[in-house]
Nucleic acid binder design. Structure first.
Lengths: 161, 161
DNA sequence: TATTGTTATACTCTATAACTATA
DNA sequence: TATAGTTATAGAGTATAACAATA
C-alpha cells in the first residue's frame, strides 16, 4: 500500500508538568484524579524519551504487544483493547501495514474480518520496544522500593476492576 | 466578546476500557505505564459522567480551581499548571470569558500580563463542580479502603516527585 | 438484522512560529 | 534581549454516520 517512503514525524516534545512553586493547588492535591493525570503525563514523557527515534506512541506499543501475543486478532477487538472506535483501529492498522510491521490475513472463521499478525520485522521491533519500555519503567520507578512498586500496581488494578 | 449564544457541545461518551476476556495482555499487565493509562481513561469516564451537562473537562476543572485559589494568576502560569502552551491557555481563557466564568483584569505589576479572576458565576460553578468531583472520587474509590486510597495518593505523588 | 471493515467528514486539543507591546 | 499575550496555521487523534459484504 505504501507508495512512497513515509518521513518519520519529528519526535514530540516530552511533556513534563512541573509543579509551580508558590502556587495554591487547593483541592487538586487531594484528588486521585489529578494525581493520576499528573502521573500519566509524566510517564508519557518518559516513554517518549525512551523510544525516541522509534516513531511510536503508547497506543502503538500496546497494539504491537497485543497483536504479538494474540495472532489473528481482529481490528474490532484491537479497538476494544485500546478503547478507540473501529475506524481508528483501522487507521492504526494501515499505519502498521505501510511500515510492514503488521500483516492482514483473511480470517479463516469469518470472511468479513481480517486477522492481524506481526511480520518478522514487526516481531523484532516489538521486542526492542519491550526492552526499552521495561528499562524506562525501571528508571521511572527508581524512587520506589520493589514493594511500593508492586503495591502501586495492585492498587491501580483494584481501582479499574 | 461573545456575540452569540454558544451551543453546548454534546456530552462526550464516557470512555471505558473494558478488559477483553480471553485475551493475552502479555507484558502490559506488568507495566505501571499501562496500569496508569487504564486508570486515567477510567477516571476520565467517571468525570465525564459526574459532570454531564456542565460542559466541562478535566483541564477546565483544573483551571477553574487554580484560578479560584490564586486570583490574579497569569495565562502563562496557567499554561504551566496544565502542561500546555501559552496559546492554549489563551484559548481556554477565551472560552471561560465567553461564558462569563473568568475575567481578565490588568495586572498591577506588569502591563503585558493579564490577571485572571473568577466571576461570581465562575465561583458558583466551580463550587458545584468541586462537589460533584468529590462525590465522584468517593464513588470511584469505593473499592479501596481509606488506607489504600491514601497510600495510592502517596505513591503517585512520590512517583511524580 | 447485526457485525466487520471501510470511507468521508468533522471536531477537539495542542503545537509552532511570527508578531506587538511591554519589560 | 527576553517575556506576555496574541494570531494564524497545522497536525494528531479520535468520533460519527453511512455503506458494502458477510454473518
Amino acid at each position: 500500500m505504501a507508495t512512497a517512503a513515509v518521513a518519520p514525524r519529528p519526535a514530540p516534545r516530552a511533556v513534563r508538568i512541573e509543579r509551580v512553586g508558590g502556587l495554591d493547588y487547593d483541592v487538586l492535591d487531594a484528588l486521585l484524579g489529578f494525581a493520576i493525570r499528573r502521573a500519566q503525563l509524566a510517564i508519557q514523557g518518559s516513554f517518549t524519551e525512551a523510544t525516541r527515534g522509534m516513531d511510536t506512541t503508547p497506543p502503538r506499543f500496546t497494539a504491537l504487544v497485543v497483536i504479538g501475543a494474540n495472532p489473528g486478532l481482529s481490528q474490532t477487538v484491537l479497538g476494544k483493547v485500546l478503547g478507540i472506535a473501529r475506524s481508528g483501529a483501522m487507521q492504526l492498522t494501515d499505519w502498521f501495514e505501510e511500515r510492514a510491521l503488521v500483516e492482514r490475513r483473511k480470517s479463516p472463521n469469518d470472511a468479513r474480518a481480517w486477522g492481524l499478525h506481526l511480520t518478522a520485522k514487526g516481531e523484532k521491533i516489538t521486542a526492542r520496544l519491550k526492552e526499552r519500555v521495561f528499562a524506562q519503567e525501571q528508571q521511572w520507578t527508581a524512587h520506589l522500593s520493589p514493594r511500593e512498586r508492586s503495591e502501586l500496581l495492585r492498587l491501580l488494578a483494584k481501582l479499574t476492576g
